[in-house]
Design a protein around this nucleic acid. Structure first.
Length: 205
DNA sequence: CTTCAGATGCTCT
DNA sequence: GAGCATCTGAAGA
């Protein structure tokens, strides 16, 4: 069986969830096939206390409505008019908070992932191009076919979910706790003191 | 390797 | 109308 992360995993402190997501597998069912990426980079956003969060101070607007949904809900928004960002809602219901997935490493159905990004096969990509295929929030959404059409869906459904292992695909659980680094978040210069919160986590080699 | 400009449309004031 | 949780290709070092 696949050990899929359930609501209880996401119904915890957001920074803890963000720290524990690297190394797990993001699974997107695309045209009936699983596109899989190993999560490599995350960031925590917490409405209660974080000026970088769209729902800072419990700000409730049409866009932030999804952040108030139950833990395990998918929050996707459009950024810079052309890219999407994937977030996973955390903490208790009514606490607007989420983890931004900033990067994954492609591990299964590589040809489809390459096709979605560059309209070519995986084998046609240079090592440098492979390394950067899904290493940004906008890139991975493009590669995994995620848009606002998926905003509000649940990770407990069958379109998109996160697993600790996928034995049927030969992907075992990895304990990467010793390889996770923490640092400041990216691209939030407007967020004053929150700029320095060490709420970004990434996998090292 | 690095910097830099430009793309593009939604969201909230 | 201003700004945005980004990415790309071009140009330079």
């Amino acid at each position: 069986m696949t050990d899929r992360l359930d609501r209880a995993f996401f119904d915890r402190d957001t920074v803890t969830v963000a720290r524990e997501l690297p190394g797990r597998y993001l699974v997107r069912i695309w045209d009936g096939r699983p596109l899989v990426g190993q999560i490599t980079e995350t960031e925590a956003y917490i409405g209660r206390c974080d000026k970088a969060c769209h729902a800072y101070g419990y700000r409730r607007t049409p866009r932030t409505e999804t952040l108030f949904a139950p833990p395990g809900t998918v929050y996707i928004y459009l950024i810079y008019g052309m890219y999407h960002c994937l977030n996973l809602v955390t903490e208790g219901e009514g606490e607007p908070a989420a983890v931004l997935i900033r990067g994954v490493r492609p591990v299964y159905n590589l040809d489809i992932i390459a096709e979605n990004r560059h309209h070519c096969k995986w084998d046609a990509l240079t090592p440098a191009r492979r390394a950067h295929l899904t290493d940004g929030p906008g890139k991975l959404c493009r590669a995994f076919g995620l848009t606002r059409a998926q905003n509000g869906i649940s990770l407990l459904g069958d379109e998109l979910f996160v697993c600790s292992s996928l034995p049927r695909l030969g992907l075992e659980r990895e304990d990467v706790t010793g390889r996770v680094q923490a640092g400041e978040r990216i691209g939030i210069d407007y967020a004053q003191e929150a700029v320095h919160f060490p709420w970004r986590f990434w996998l090292t080699f």
